[in-house]
Amino acid sequence: MFRAIYEYFKEILLAIRGLINGMRITGKYIAHARKEIITQEYPDNRDTLQMFDRFRGEVVLLHNENNEHRCTGCSACEVACPNGSIEIIWARREDPETGKKKKQIETFVYHLSMCTMCNLCILACPTDAIKMGHDFEHAVFDRSQLTKVLNRPGSKLEKGVEE
């Protein structure tokens, strides 16, 4: 009888201790709530937001200051891509300097909507022409805008890049 009463009150006290234990944690965090905030005010911190080097946001074709890229149109990335998000349209055109016919890209089409950012195209590229950009704000109002042409107008192959 007394044992049961003792157990009853012990149970209550233990429960209260457990509850207070939990409240101590949350109480601790609200006491220094300002210091411990873990969320970011995202669109406001755009200017200071620094992505990591290896962050994979989208595929970009690198151009240097003379509007030259390193893509020879070998289509290795197109083959490597699991989703068919890269399409390279190339043609043999006459090189104005040597007069020889040379394979050149016309358009480097990139379907962002199909890309899974797996990085396989970057690994496949023999001339390091493409890399992963850091831009992650891809939302657009029209789906067709997600199909991008990566080579800039008038750009041509950088000198010295082997075919």
Binding site: D53, R54, R56, M117, N119, L123, M132
Partner: peptide, 27 residues
Amino acid sequence: NDIFEETCGARLTMNYNVPGGLMFDIH
């Protein structure tokens, strides 16, 4: 997730393994 993003390039779908090893060396 930050560790992953720095080393593997993505936070969730990292795809860091390739047959035979890793995609890149660790950061």
